[in-house]
């Protein structure tokens, strides 16, 4: 039954509190959504520590595992799916939105802050004792399976429904029978393309360790088909050589190519 907290906790608060606030502000103000997510992770981790400090070790663990671990990963997955490069433009399209948001935010913070400060001036700290310590999980479990059983079951049902709902919602409907089997796919492939077999791989390790290196045909010419889409083909001699080349010697030499590599001619071009 103390009203002031211990010094160690004070230190923790004053170290982690600004970090949490900075994370929140960073999330709101970073233009890149991925950065936002990382800032939020920062805040959540700080909050997790606060939970532990405040006699809720189980929730602190859950916060770190569920929120920062699972939910934020989900956010990042979706961000990757949606296109992470979609940085928000800084131009506000709604007239007065930012000003109004700022005014209202400040007003809300002032009001709620003032209200809390006023109402909780003499907040007693009963403390949870062992319930906030080693017996925390037991204490929570006791209440969860007795007084809050119904809510617990309902929450479980909610989770199931949410999971199934998300599946249903994101599923792409295909008309029955429109899915093509292996036979149809193979037939289509042989009938419509000139090249039924796989495309040649890039010339990696042939003369350079880059996917931008073209594959060589048996006659020693390069084939454009070996490039992955979107890759600019590069001159092989401008590519970094495989490491340890001095020891292995030139790949051309190793392979016994008739036409030595231009750099090997030593004409100093």
């Amino acid at each position: 039954m103390t009203e002031t907290l211990s010094g160690g906790e004070t230190v923790v608060f004053w170290v982690l509190g600004p970090i949490a606030l900075a994370g929140a502000l960073g999330m709101v103000f970073s233009r890149n959504a991925v950065h936002s997510a990382l800032w939020l992770v920062n805040t959540m981790l700080a909050l997790g520590v606060f939970y532990v400090v405040q006699s809720a070790p189980f929730l602190g663990a859950a916060q770190i595992i569920v929120y920062t671990g699972a939910i934020m990963i989900l956010f990042l997955f979706v961000l990757m799916l949606v296109g992470r490069d979609s940085s928000d433009s800084v131009v506000e399209t709604l007239r007065g939105q930012r000003v109004a948001a700022a005014v209202l935010g400040l007003g809300f913070a002032a009001l709620v802050g003032a209200g809390i400060a006023r109402a909780t001036q003499d907040l007693v700290v009963s403390g949870l004792g062992d319930d906030g310590g080693n017996a925390n999980v037991t204490a929570i479990a006791e209440l969860l399976y007795t007084r809050y059983l119904l809510a617990f079951e309902a929450t479980g049902a909610l989770l199931i429904v949410a999971a199934v709902g998300a599946l249903v919602y994101t599923q792409i409907e295909r008309a029955p029978g429109s899915r093509r089997g292996q036979k149809e796919l193979a037939r289509a492939r042989f009938l419509t393309t000139d090249r039924p077999q796989t495309l040649p791989g890039p010339g990696v390790y042939a003369r350079a360790n880059s996917v931008a290196a073209p594959a060589l045909l048996p006659d020693g010419t390069t084939t454009e088909e070996s490039f992955a889409t979107g890759i600019e083909p590069q001159e092989v001699d401008q590519m970094p050589r495989p490491t340890g080349r001095e020891q292995l010697g030139s790949p051309d030499g190793a392979l016994g190519t008739l036409d030595p590599a231009p750099s090997d001619r030593g004409d100093g071009r």
């Binding site: 939105q97 209202l104 209200g115």
Partner: peptide
């Protein structure tokens, strides 16, 4: 976001009213 602005405005009003009453 306009609607959300309205909600926040309402919340400010409610908070202000609560504070005024207490």
């Amino acid at each position: 976001r306009t609607y959300a602005l309205g909600m926040l405005g309402g919340a400010v009003l409610v908070a202000g009213a609560l504070l005024a009453v207490t």
